[in-house]
Amino acid sequence: MTNAENQAFFDAAREGRFMIGRCKACKELHYYPRAVCPFCGGPTELVAAKGSGKIYSYSVMRRVEKPYAIAYVTLDEGVTVLTNLVDCDPDSIRIDQPVRVVFKDGIPMFTPA
């Protein structure tokens, strides 16, 4: 699923950096990162996020072999990202809970801060 447009994001993630998109023209941040700004159509670049934020919403998938928590996390920078919540008790997860990025096999995920 990686391609010429998104490869740099996953290369950075493998090195432990969580990147978000920023437009070189309008300066707006966006997620998921893409080559053309979704707001103004300008050219974009990847910038490193601090990697901290809070849970916007989540759901624990129960009826599968290995239950897992999907979530939207709103980063301190203001954009909201789809992710998993890991290394925590699923029953302890709450909206607005502070979380920080961790990397699992080169994929950014989040865990309680």
């Binding site: 990686t2 989540y58 759901s59 998938m61 897992y68 999907i70 979530a71 939207y72 992710t83 998993n84």
Partner: peptide
């Protein structure tokens, strides 16, 4: 796809959120 598929978005959990 690359930014979402790794996290297991099914139908039910995307509506559950």
């Amino acid at each position: 796809a690359a930014f979402e598929a790794p996290y297991g978005p099914a139908t039910v959990n995307m509506y559950a959120m």
